[in-house]
Amino acid sequence: MTLEDRSLGVVGIVDAVTRRLRARILAGEIAGHTALTEAKVSELFGVARPSAKAAIEQLVASGLLVRTAHRSARVVAIDPEMVRDVYRTRTRLESAALRELAAVRTVPAGASDANAEMLRMPAGPSPETVDPDLRFHTALIDGIASERTSRMYRSVLDEVRLCMAQVQGRRLLDAEVIAGQHAEILDAVAIGDGDRAAELLAAHLRSAEERLVEAVGE
């Protein structure tokens, strides 16, 4: 049964196609540089071309697809420059959030829960660490209770996931190592040392940035 057959309404159909297409891109099922025409998306999901076009435009707006003049939209292909910009943007946003949290010595429960989940994982690098890792960092941003900052951060996270998807999870660290670095950051927040928390975060993200840049180069 196609999406059109489910009586979702035009907006519901577009949103459903957008979610499915986004999920396939972020899972690495659709490679970088892949052209996504209205006809291709229409056939892929069994929807009318206007719905396919609207879904494509939503993903262009979110940064997962790129369109140049008179050309089909294509999946963004990551390169070292993009990786560095994405991670430095993360560092700026998260460092500011950590300083605010440390000023009131507040450790977000969501960050602690995500880190505890990582500690329960089996030893060794695994793509399964990606989701709790990103939930940890998202919880830091959400902890300052700024709707706009959270919205900005989530737009960056799509590009982070895209980077990870296109290198197929290479260069991942052991879950225990990541969780240990996270714990140090939270400890600094808990004692009110915002500068220390920001320094630890910068080192943590810089390490991830370098591993991704190396993987892209391969």
Score class of each variant (00 low, 15 high):
residue 3 L to I: 15
residue 4 E to S: 15
residue 5 D to R: 12
residue 5 D to N: 14
residue 8 L to N: 06
residue 8 L to V: 05
residue 9 G to H: 09
residue 9 G to M: 12
residue 10 V to Q: 11
residue 11 V to Y: 04
residue 12 G to H: 02
residue 12 G to T: 03
residue 13 I to N: 03
residue 15 D to M: 09
residue 17 V to G: 04
residue 20 R to Y: 10
residue 21 L to G: 02
residue 21 L to K: 02
residue 24 R to Q: 15
residue 24 R to C: 06
residue 25 I to N: 01
residue 26 L to I: 06
residue 27 A to W: 02
residue 28 G to W: 01
residue 31 A to V: 10
residue 32 G to E: 07
residue 32 G to I: 12
residue 36 L to Y: 06
residue 38 E to W: 05
residue 38 E to L: 07
residue 39 A to G: 14
residue 42 S to Y: 08
residue 43 E to D: 15
residue 44 L to G: 10
residue 45 F to V: 03
residue 46 G to M: 08
residue 46 G to E: 04
residue 53 K to Y: 10
residue 54 A to W: 03
residue 54 A to T: 07
residue 54 A to M: 10
residue 55 A to C: 11
residue 61 A to N: 06
residue 65 L to T: 07
residue 65 L to P: 00
residue 67 R to F: 05
residue 67 R to I: 04
residue 67 R to V: 07
residue 73 A to H: 03
residue 74 R to W: 03
residue 75 V to A: 09
residue 76 V to W: 03
residue 77 A to M: 11
residue 79 D to L: 06
residue 80 P to S: 06
residue 83 V to Y: 00
residue 84 R to C: 09
residue 85 D to V: 13
residue 88 R to Q: 13
residue 89 T to Y: 01
residue 90 R to Q: 08
residue 94 E to W: 00
residue 95 S to I: 04
residue 96 A to D: 13
residue 97 A to V: 01
residue 100 E to N: 08
residue 100 E to Y: 09
residue 103 A to N: 10
residue 105 R to S: 11
residue 106 T to I: 08
residue 106 T to H: 11
residue 106 T to Y: 12
residue 107 V to T: 01
residue 109 A to Q: 15
residue 110 G to C: 14
residue 111 A to W: 02
residue 113 D to F: 10
residue 114 A to S: 08
residue 117 E to R: 15
residue 119 L to N: 14
residue 121 M to W: 05
residue 121 M to Y: 05
residue 121 M to K: 04
residue 125 P to A: 14
residue 126 S to H: 01
residue 132 P to M: 08
residue 133 D to H: 06
residue 133 D to W: 04
residue 133 D to G: 01
residue 133 D to E: 15
residue 134 L to H: 15
residue 134 L to W: 14
residue 134 L to T: 13
residue 138 T to V: 13
residue 140 L to A: 02
residue 141 I to L: 04
residue 141 I to P: 00
residue 144 I to Y: 01
residue 146 S to P: 05
residue 147 E to P: 15
residue 147 E to G: 13
residue 149 T to D: 09
residue 151 R to L: 13
residue 152 M to I: 12
residue 153 Y to I: 08
residue 155 S to Y: 10
residue 157 L to P: 00
residue 160 V to L: 12
residue 161 R to D: 12
residue 163 C to L: 15
residue 164 M to Y: 11
residue 165 A to L: 06
residue 166 Q to L: 07
residue 166 Q to C: 05
residue 166 Q to H: 06
residue 168 Q to C: 07
residue 168 Q to S: 11
residue 176 E to C: 08
residue 176 E to H: 15
residue 177 V to T: 14
residue 177 V to S: 10
residue 178 I to R: 14
residue 178 I to K: 12
residue 182 H to T: 04
residue 184 E to H: 14
residue 185 I to M: 12
residue 185 I to Y: 03
residue 185 I to G: 09
residue 188 A to P: 01
residue 188 A to L: 01
residue 188 A to V: 04
residue 194 G to M: 06
residue 196 R to N: 09
residue 197 A to H: 00
residue 197 A to N: 00
residue 198 A to Q: 00
residue 199 E to F: 03
residue 204 H to F: 12
residue 204 H to Y: 09
residue 205 L to A: 05
residue 206 R to P: 03
residue 210 E to A: 12
residue 210 E to F: 00
residue 211 R to L: 14
residue 211 R to C: 02
residue 211 R to W: 07
residue 212 L to P: 00
residue 214 E to Q: 15
residue 215 A to K: 04
residue 216 V to F: 08
residue 217 G to K: 13
